[in-house]
Design a protein around this nucleic acid. Sequence first.
DNA 1: CTAGGTTTTCGCCTCAGAGTTGAAAACCTC
DNA 2: GAGGTTTTCAACTCTGAGGCGAAAACCTAG
Lengths: 228, 228
Amino acid sequence: MVSRERPLQSSLAVVLQIREGALQVLLWKRAREPFSGTWSLPGGFLEPGETLEQSIRKHLAAKVDVREVAHLEQLETLSDPGRDPREWQVATAYLGLVPAGLDPELPDDTTWHPVSALPELAFDHREITLAGRERLRAKLSYTNIGFALAPAECTISELRDLYAAALGHDVSATNLQRVLLRRGVIEATGERRAPGRGGGRPAAVIRFRTRQLEVTDEFAVLRPPSTK
Amino acid sequence: MVSRERPLQSSLAVVLQIREGALQVLLWKRAREPFSGTWSLPGGFLEPGETLEQSIRKHLAAKVDVREVAHLEQLETLSDPGRDPREWQVATAYLGLVPAGLDPELPDDTTWHPVSALPELAFDHREITLAGRERLRAKLSYTNIGFALAPAECTISELRDLYAAALGHDVSATNLQRVLLRRGVIEATGERRAPGRGGGRPAAVIRFRTRQLEVTDEFAVLRPPSTK
DNA sequence: CTAGGTTTTCGCCTCAGAGTTGAAAACCTC
DNA sequence: GAGGTTTTCAACTCTGAGGCGAAAACCTAG
């Protein structure tokens, strides 16, 4: 095998969670150059003997409890020679999802940021983050990926708010329930949740039938409400 | 920057074309170990200063006339440490599409193979090839990617055969026409094509409105015919 | 305890778009 | 011109998403 120049290979992840009704991404603040002071996606270099997925899991573990990452999938591989001003580097981006309600402990340099109002991001991390959001939005329509955004059990109303936050537009609870029920994506647990202060009929508690990604062959787009 | 071990980075491509009514993939026969005698996907190593897409375009040029590749997109990045028995290697796979009707000149070691009857493939190339086919099938449903399978101008019947070959099931010409017309994916050129031997009404010649990938926001699945 | 407010749930309707069918149109060959 | 072939088009069906409103099931205040 001929000796040849090789790029550094790294993995990084867009970790998303719905927090306070908004889609947020996990970022850490760079203390060193380049891009010192700006925010960037978690990740790091690939080590011999590990796969990219093992690599990103390991690097994520330094920032969050990875057991709380309910779903992880590959997004895309970035290879622009100039993407890191220091050195030739190829990076594979992943999309990670953390169910709402969890509040993992984070290091001091790491926090959540609403994707709709990103601070200045290092390298090409802004584009990667937006690509992650788009992937999530698309998959909400034709897969059961909602399981990775929702707690193990929740109500339709809570689910509607999660979908609305992720999709960026209102979602009808009635319609959401029917679509997800027909697909067999969610099922009723039989329990009911007492209404909060202010009253109201107690909501049925539902759960996602499986917590593994499944693709529905009948597509279904959750559209924004008609603007009448 | 700490010195560290680096993987070889390579690009490879699943180049698909409908030939003789079947979806076929471009493969070349390995003359050397490992996997000598088996077939593998075209590709090669990444050089400093180039992107992965430039890399795969360059390596493809050694096998086919790349100008005939109407569409090229990234598929996935493989990183299993054992995927190449010789050495640690990370590979990014692309999907390339060649319109039907073209018959690029190929080197002696390179030919087309039906995806439905693959020979023994080297490394993980079999899985990659099937992943490419799946990506194509999915995108036929909700994008205009058919432009990359079809010649610049063709009839609905020809298009139906192309779709049927790619999707692996029958497609109704009537329905295909309406779906693609409504979306504005195809348009009539106004010309008509004389029927072949045996007669028949001359078919209207259509073309794809654009030859760039566009995603339709209304999903539409082209389903197999109902089994009655 | 009752009236009024709130949230959830469900049935029914509409609407859009994909799939199906059959007949007419437009060609061929014998 | 008769009979065969392929294409095209209009009408219908069917499925599934979106919308609406009434009923259900709770709360709180008086």
